[in-house]
Structures are given as structure tokens and as C-alpha cells.
Simulated scan of single mutants.
Amino acid sequence: MRPSSPPLSYAGVELPRSELAVSALRYAAELTDPVVFRHSLRGYLFGRAIGETRALRAGADYDDELMFVASVLHDIGVSDAGNGDERFEVDGADLAVGFLREHGLSQDRAAVAWDAIALHTFEGIGARKGPEVMLCHAGITADILGRGRELLPAGFADRVHAELPREDLAYVLTDAIVAQALDNPRKAGPLSFPGQLVRRHLPQGALPDWYDLIADAGWGDRPARDGNG
């Protein structure tokens, strides 16, 4: 059973308590698998902690409420409600922004939230955006791949995991993305992150790679000769 009123502090960190933040927290808890929901909270906590190592102060150097709502909603694209015809990151961004706009978020701030959610799997892009997008990306990446975990304060990850256990999150989330993509191939373009995941679950060659795509482009391009002619 999913919580209707999740706690508002974890590992000694107070979560934003604005009406928008609490509504987004409850919405994420209602829509997503509990394992995925806990990942979204850890992403916020880790992103905020990484921000502190870069002298970024919540509420002063970045919009903490905005970073929080983007973090907790970033994976609603893998929920039943968020399962549309786009890759899960984009479906999730569209659903999240619709919810946030209905709850009074301005268009400019909603655009930042959309970027943070839609770009959270894009290596080398999210980290180059504004601080809210960058910290959202950093926290999510730390929780999934462990990148940047060395920046977290000593013992902080252990305290977070004690309150928000992982329960094999990386595989649970991967399986959810793959299940959606197998059911609807439009969600897993051959060059996308979901496409990379689903390729291992299809017969070899069923999903074209980059070289297949350029070979079929119709322009007649040929590979360059190697150095030996």
C-alpha cells in the first residue's frame, strides 16, 4: 500500500513544505512503485548534498522547491498513468508539468522542471544546464550509477538508505522501462536510452543500431576507406 502522506524529513534533512511540494510528493507516492518512489526521494537528498559540496545553498543559489518537485516526479513516466507513446522520460516530463501547472507553477519554472525530468538520463547535457537541472541529474545519477557518491558527506548515504531502502532499485526500474518498451516499441527509439535497454531483450538485429540507420538513409553514403586504402 502506497503512503498517502509521506514523511517530510529524511536522514535529518527537511523536505520543502510548500503546498506545491507536498502535493507533488503525494502525487509521486500515489503513481509510482514504492521502490521507484524511494529512489526519487534519494535523488533529491543526494542532489542537495552534492550541491552543498559545490557551495550551492538551497533556496539561495537554486530554487529548492523546483529541484525537489522535479526530483520526486522524475520517474512518473514509468507509472501506468505516465505510460504514453513517448520515451518514458518525455512522457514523465509532460505529465509532471501538466500536474505542476494545474497547481500554480509558472510557465518559466515549469520549463525548468520539464528539462530536469526529460534530460535526467542524458549524459553530458543535464549537468550543463542550470543548477536545478544539474543537481537533479547529479542526485539521480548518484543513486542509480554511484557517480558522485564520493562527494556525499561521510555516513550520509547509509542514513538515507536506512530510511529509504534500495530493494534492488536499479533492476526494478530497468525492468519497468523494458516492459513498457516491449509493449510499445514507439517508446524505445533505437538511439535512445530505453532502446539501449530493450535491445538486450530482442533477437539480435531486431532493433537497428546507428550503422543500420545510416545504411538505410537512402543517400548512398559509403564508409570512408581505412588508412591502408
Results as ranks from 00 to 15, higher is better:
Pro203Gln: 01
Ser23Gln: 11
Tyr211Ala: 13
Leu41Val: 02
Ala170Cys: 12
Leu73Ser: 00
Val35Asp: 05
Pro203His: 04
Gly126Ser: 09
Ile50Leu: 10
Arg222Gly: 04
Asp158Pro: 06
Arg48Asp: 05
Val90Trp: 03
Gly227Arg: 08
Leu15His: 00
Gln204Arg: 14
Gln107Trp: 13
Leu145Lys: 13
Val198Ser: 00
Leu197Ala: 01
Arg87Gly: 15
Leu173Cys: 03
Ala157Phe: 09
Gly189Gln: 13
Asn184Thr: 09
Asp80Ile: 13
Ile76Ala: 02
Ser5Cys: 13
Tyr44Met: 07
Tyr27Lys: 14
Ala188Pro: 05
Ala176Gly: 07
Ala81Tyr: 11
Gly82Phe: 05
Leu100Lys: 04
Asp94Val: 14
Leu45Ala: 02
Leu56Gly: 00
Ala111Ser: 12
Ile144Phe: 13
Gln180Thr: 03
Ile50Ser: 01
Ser106Lys: 02
Ala81Ser: 10
Val97Asp: 07
Glu167His: 14
Gly47Glu: 03
Asp175Trp: 13
Phe46Ala: 03
Glu52Ile: 01
Ala49Val: 11
Gly130Met: 06
Ala224Gly: 10
Leu145Pro: 00
Gly43Gln: 01
Glu65Asp: 10
Ile140Glu: 14
Gly84Cys: 07
Thr121Met: 13
Ala118Leu: 10
Ile50Pro: 00
Ala116Ile: 08
Arg54Ser: 14
Val35His: 02
Leu66Met: 04
Ile117Cys: 03
Ala154Asp: 15
Ala55Val: 00
Val198Phe: 03
Ala111Lys: 12
Ala215Ser: 11
Ile140Phe: 14
Ile125Leu: 09
Leu182Tyr: 04
Pro34Arg: 08
Ala154Cys: 11
Ala217Glu: 15
Ala154Asn: 14
Leu20Gln: 05
Val172Ala: 07
Phe193Tyr: 09
Ala24Met: 06
Thr141Cys: 09
Ala55Glu: 15
Ala127Val: 13
Pro131Ile: 06
His201Met: 08
Val172Ile: 11
Ala142Gln: 02
Phe68Tyr: 02
Leu151Asp: 10
His39Val: 02
Ala58Met: 11
Ala111Asn: 12
Phe88Lys: 12
Gly92Leu: 07
Arg200Phe: 14
Arg222Pro: 02
Gly148Phe: 04
Val160Asn: 08
Asp175Ser: 15
Ala96Leu: 01
Leu152Thr: 06
Leu66Thr: 08
Gln107Asp: 15
Asp80His: 14
His201Asn: 10
Pro153Trp: 08
Leu95Trp: 05
Glu123Asp: 15
Pro6Arg: 00
Glu102Gln: 12
Leu41Glu: 07
Glu52Val: 01
Gly82Val: 08
Trp210Cys: 05
Ile214Lys: 07
Arg147Ala: 14
Arg225Gly: 13
Gly148Leu: 05
Ala49Ile: 09
Arg149Cys: 15
Leu105His: 01
Tyr10Cys: 06
Gly229Val: 04
Gly84Tyr: 08
Gly148Asn: 02
Asp108Asn: 13
Asp80Asn: 13
Val36Trp: 02
Asp209Ile: 11
Pro223His: 02
His137Ile: 11
Arg222Lys: 11
Asp212Lys: 01
Glu86Gly: 06
Gly227Lys: 06
Asn83His: 11
Leu31Glu: 09
Leu152Trp: 01
Gly148Pro: 00
Asp168Cys: 05
Leu202Asn: 00
Arg26Val: 07
Gly43Asp: 02
Arg101Asp: 06
Val172Ser: 03
Gly155Ser: 09
Pro165Thr: 04
Asp91His: 03
Ile177Val: 08
Pro34Val: 09
Trp210Asp: 10
Gly155Asn: 12
Arg200Ala: 15
Ser5Thr: 15
